[in-house]
Design a binder for these strands. Structure first.
Length: 300
DNA sequence: TCACGTCAAGCAGAT
DNA sequence: ATCTGCTTGACGTGA
């Protein structure tokens, strides 16, 4: 079981998601920004390793405008040695990596342009993971997309478009239940059709479910993952104390986290924390597991 | 140095 | 109609 967090490390004084505005685009600026983003990414990964955090989501902003038409620069070739260096670090230390395209990537969109841009964006994300020479266990995770007042048709559109994707994208793509449109049981239905592995988002499930308890779903969730896909992935958050329902918490509620861990302890999976204070919560979770004899072997 | 208007992009739900 | 939130505020002009 690996513990991870998403994109940003607040303890370090760098960001791997520096970008710039489109109207300021220049090759020079692009190179500088990518250079500093890659520097920071490696710094974060080293910080993580030192703290036994072996799961990390790389930001989509690593390469600014990575899937935008303005991008003509061959960053894949120009930075290939830098990527190789990071690749070695990740592989040598068995770090699990994922990426998560943003809200503008909607594979099942009814708008043709949005659909085509989405395919390009998936290509960009997969490009990054391919450049890092990572196995198919490094995943690109998305939500199903829009409902457009007709969930059945929208799911069918997702399925058809998934099937048209190139193999290297299909090998990495996974889908996650969200908090307002597609519940976990919707996601499972899609899995039945195309066998795409599914991420179980514990907190989204609390916001949107069909009254089914986690324990009943866990077996079917786990079985959507094949050996080549690596360990199943769970997303974990808890409720924001003041902002209320379905807002991500500022920091992890470690008691609730522990309860969840106990409830699911017969399964092996990796946990991505989606919590505002990032690595701080990850450190707490790692410490909890290391201090508990039931888990301290499985995390190392 | 800092305030604050704006930034590539979609969708759903609340106001 | 407009605003907010989403995996996340950051950029950068103008004072």
């Amino acid at each position: 079981m690996k513990i991870g967090y998403a994109c940003i490390n607040q303890s370090l004084d760098c960001r791997s998601s520096r970008t710039f505005r489109l109207k300021n685009y220049s090759e020079e600026r692009l190179k500088n920004t990518i250079d500093s983003n890659l520097d920071c990414l490696l710094k974060i990964l080293k910080f993580n390793l030192k703290n036994k955090i072996l799961f990390f989501r790389i930001t989509s902003d690593l390469i600014p405008f990575g899937s935008h038409p303005i991008m003509r620069f061959d960053w894949q070739d120009y930075f290939k040695l830098r990527f190789r260096e990071i690749s070695k670090f990740i592989t040598r230390n068995k770090v699990r990596i994922t990426m998560h395209p943003g809200q503008y990537t909607v594979l099942n969109s009814k708008n043709r342009d949005v659909y085509e841009n989405s395919v390009n964006d998936l290509k960009y994300h997969v490009d990054v993971l391919d450049l890092l020479e990572l196995s198919p266990s490094a995943k690109v995770q998305i939500h199903v997309g829009g409902v457009y007042q007709d969930k059945k048709k929208s799911i069918m559109r997702f399925v058809e478009r998934y099937e048209k994707l190139e193999e290297n994208i299909k090998n990495r793509l996974i889908i996650e239940n969200d908090d307002r449109s597609y519940s976990f049981s919707d996601i499972l239905k899609i899995n039945e059709k195309i066998k795409i592995p599914v991420v179980f988002d514990v907190y989204h499930h609390e916001c949107l479910n069909n009254g089914t308890r986690i324990e009943k779903l866990f077996e079917s969730f786990i079985s959507t993952w094949k050996r080549k896909d690596g360990h199943p992935i769970v997303h974990y958050s808890s409720e924001h104390l003041t902002k209320g329902k379905c807002k991500h918490a500022e920091t992890i509620n470690i008691e609730n986290f522990y309860k969840f861990i106990l409830k699911t302890k017969s399964y092996n999976f990796d946990i991505m924390l989606e919590i505002k204070d990032k690595e701080k919560s990850a450190l707490k979770a790692v410490k909890l597991l290391l201090d508990d004899p039931r888990f301290n072997k499985s995390i190392l």
